[in-house]
Each structure stands twice: as C-alpha cells, then as structure tokens.
C-alpha cells in the first residue's frame, strides 16, 4: 500500500461514513416525532453531509484523477464504498436511530479527537472543524439514549431491542484493518487500539445511566471498511444515485 493509496482509502472511509449516515438521517426530515426534533436531527444530517463533502473532496485531490465529491458520491458502486456497516442500517424508529447515532458518535468523537493530531494537515484541519459538530452530536444522542432507556417501560423495551439488534455492528468501529494499522503507524490516522478503551468506557457509562445492557456477543459483523456491505447499502445508493445515473454526464 502506498502512502497515497492509504490516504485516499482513509479519506473515502471517513467521507462514506458521514455521507451514508447523513443520507439515512435525512430520511427523517418531515417525519420526526415532534417538530423540534425534526429540526434537530436535520441539523445533524446537514453536519454529516457537510463533513462528507470535505472528506470526499480531499479524497479526490489525493487521488489526483480529477474526481469531485459528486463523482465519488454518485459514481461508485456499492463495493467501492468504505463506510462501516452500522451507518447503513435502516432508521426503523427513533430508538434504532438514536442507538445507531450514539454508538457511532461515541466512536466518531474519539476518532476525530485523535485525527486533529494527524501529521496530514488537511486531515487534522477537517477533523478539528468536524469535532465541534460531533461533540454536539454525542451529547444529543447520549441524552436521547438515557432519556428513552430510562423513560417509560415501552421506551426502555424499544431501546433495548434496538441495542440488541445493532450491537453486532459496533465491533467494526474499532476493528483494526491493515489500513488502520498503516495509518496509525505513520501517525496519519487514529490508533484504534488506543481509542477502544475510551470508546468502550463512554458507551458503558451512558448505557448504564440509560439502564440498558449491552449484549455480550462472541462475534461481531465486519466488512464495510473493505467494501463488503449489508443488503441495505445497495438500496441507499440506488435511490441516492438515481438521477445522476439516469442522465449521465449532466450538470445539476
């Protein structure tokens, strides 16, 4: 793996995580449980898509073949996407959406904290800007997990079910792939082994306050980081890319 390839793949992964989660969250727009939260969640969707644009633009620059953020978002096949499996899981209801968001935010927060110290200045700069947004996301999703976990019996059950269903995708967040090892070694990316305990501690702390219990699983699902996705991503892309694919080569 060359330095350039690694940087490209890494920026793609960060961009794809943000893009796919942003796409999922934007499905809520107009359908939230209350107007105030519709607006709040859309703010997070906007942050995610905004971050995706920064990362994908940078990925295109590293690659040096003139691909723009849109070329990368709209003209790659699902096997070329590098996002983790968690972010492509369906919204289902507010419980799934908040559990998914919280697990991702908790990881994403410590990830970006480390990335602000990257030897790559662009990575450090994008991370620093994103970190402010992610700090708010984590507070928001933590509060919702606690509120609903410790709310009514019904909300507790719904949250526990969502957690049981989504937990299997949480391991991939801190799974060290060869790319992660390389990026950590070169001090360009995050050291996930160093990150993991802090992430796990945060999750434990919030779940405890939410009176929820994390399942103890012998195995976790992984593969998203290397382009092996769940069935859902194909559908997300079929929708997201439809106009660009139907009228190739046009400006919008």
């Amino acid at each position: 793996m060359t330095h350039q390839q690694a940087l490209f793949e890494y920026a793609l992964r960060l961009g794809d995580n943000a893009l796919i989660l942003g796409q999922r969250l934007s499905e809520w727009c107009g359908h939230g449980p209350v107007l105030e939260q519709d607006i709040a969640l859309t703010n997070i969707a906007l942050d995610q898509v905004g971050q995706a644009r920064s990362w994908l633009t940078y990925a295109g620059e590293i690659e040096g073949k003139g691909r723009s953020e849109d070329d990368l978002a709209y003209h790659r096949e699902q096997r070329e996407f590098r996002n983790v499996l968690l972010v492509e899981q369906p919204n289902q209801d507010w419980a799934y959406t908040m559990i998914r968001q919280f697990l991702f935010d908790a990881f994403n927060f410590y990830l970006h904290e480390q990335l602000t110290g990257s030897r790559d200045q662009t990575i450090a700069a994008i991370a620093a800007k994103s970190l402010k947004e992610i700090t708010y996301h984590l507070r928001y999703s933590s509060e919702w997990v606690i509120r609903l976990g410790d709310g009514t019996d019904l909300s507790h059950r719904k949250m526990q079910t969502a957690l049981d269903d989504l937990w299997i995708y949480s391991g991939e967040l801190t799974q060290v792939t060869p790319l992660d090892a390389f990026m950590a070694e070169e001090e360009l990316g995050a050291d996930l082994d160093r990150l993991r305990p802090r992430y796990e501690e945060k999750v434990r702390e919030v779940l405890e306050e939410a009176t929820l219990s994390a399942p103890n699983l012998p195995y976790h699902q992984q593969g998203g980081k290397e382009g092996r996705h769940s069935e859902h991503l194909g559908h997300i892309l079929a929708v997201m890319q439809s106009v660009q694919r139907a009228y190739p080569g046009q400006k919008w």
Binding site: E27, C29, T42, L46, D70, Y74, M240, S242, V243, W252
Partner: peptide, 17 residues
C-alpha cells in the same frame, strides 16, 4: 434522498428544515 449533487442535497435539506 435523490438530490443529484451534494451541494443540492444540503441546500434542499436546509430549506425543508
């Protein structure tokens, strides 16, 4: 979900919001 560019997507999201 189908906005044909990311710039259009954020603008539309912000507008609907």
């Amino acid at each position: 979900s189908r906005a044909p560019s990311l710039r259009r997507k954020v603008a539309l999201l912000a507008k609907v919001q």
